[in-house]
Design a protein around this nucleic acid. Structure first.
Lengths: 144, 144
DNA sequence: TGATATTGTTTAGTCGGCAAATAAAAGCTG
DNA sequence: CAGCTTTTATTTGCCGACTAAACAATATCA
């Protein structure tokens, strides 16, 4: 119970898996001209276009300052664009451009592939169980 | 089975947990003057002092270039120091300095605290099960 | 109405990561 | 032994992430 060694912590195990997951996703996403994390932003726009930056920051659990630079780069790349909110001069809303829409299927394919690789050799029951356990962990640690 | 939506992927769930875990650890480690990831390097030195950089890179699943800069900063901070290997002119070995030894108990305390917070409300059986499932995922995705 | 919060975004600086190119030392091989 | 290959570490440059601070626009309230 009192694991002195960090190496044996469940948190460290998850840390290693997430890094491997990220590296594998990056390997495939780089072929689409994307960097890690950019597909998450696109995903939220595919779900609902024209979100404000603070809205995106909340959804992505990221600081607003992180988004500013990322949106700059993705705008330069032609994936998205900023447009000021007509009703509130403070907020700037983020909209998909055509290039950002066009890669949706490819990006989702990448995620499905990595998902399949990661959770191979697990039965359906085990996946359901894993999801239930992880949901509990998320509730424990997320500042809801 | 064919989850179109990335939000519902198990990989995304783990991604969110890892970020929350990292942020929580960072919050506590910053009080010790450490940045995220530095405690992992120290951990491997506490286990065995004087490791080479390539050895550390393997253990940490990190590129050598990442370590170079991190070791620079941690050396400046007085936590560790580089010493050339007497038998092989290529390798430089990393040794703990006193400040790096002194914070071991504090850092391990932080990890135990975050571990306890993260995996609260899970029975012993559930933790064992979670570990088994995660080990399988790690084997799937890690380039052993 | 006018002074004071509050909210949304940006800027500057730092850190952990990566890839690609480079340099230096050791190992191998004919 | 000379030449090629492999291993080890560094440099450069970029991206995602953070904090702290600044700035601009809207809300709030006396």
């Amino acid at each position: 119970m009192s694991n002195q060694n960090i190496t044996e912590a469940l948190g460290y195990l998850m840390f290693q898996i997430c890094r491997a997951h990220r590296n594998r996703a990056q390997e495939l996403l780089s072929e689409l001209g994307l960097y890690t994390g950019q597909e998450i932003l696109l995903m939220h726009l595919w779900e609902k276009d024209g979100r404000s930056q603070s809205e995106l920051a909340d959804l992505m659990c990221v600081q607003p300052a992180t988004l500013t630079k990322s949106i700059d780069r993705m705008s330069t790349a032609g994936l998205i664009e900023r447009r000021p909110d007509p009703n509130d001069g403070r907020v700037s809303r983020v909209y998909l451009r055509q290039a950002g829409r066009d890669i949706q299927a490819l990006v989702e394919g990448v995620w499905q592939q990595v998902e399949a690789e990661s959770f191979a050799h697990l039965t359906v029951e085990e996946r359901i169980l894993l999801r239930r356990l992880l949901m509990q962990v998320k509730q424990n640690i997320s500042p809801d």
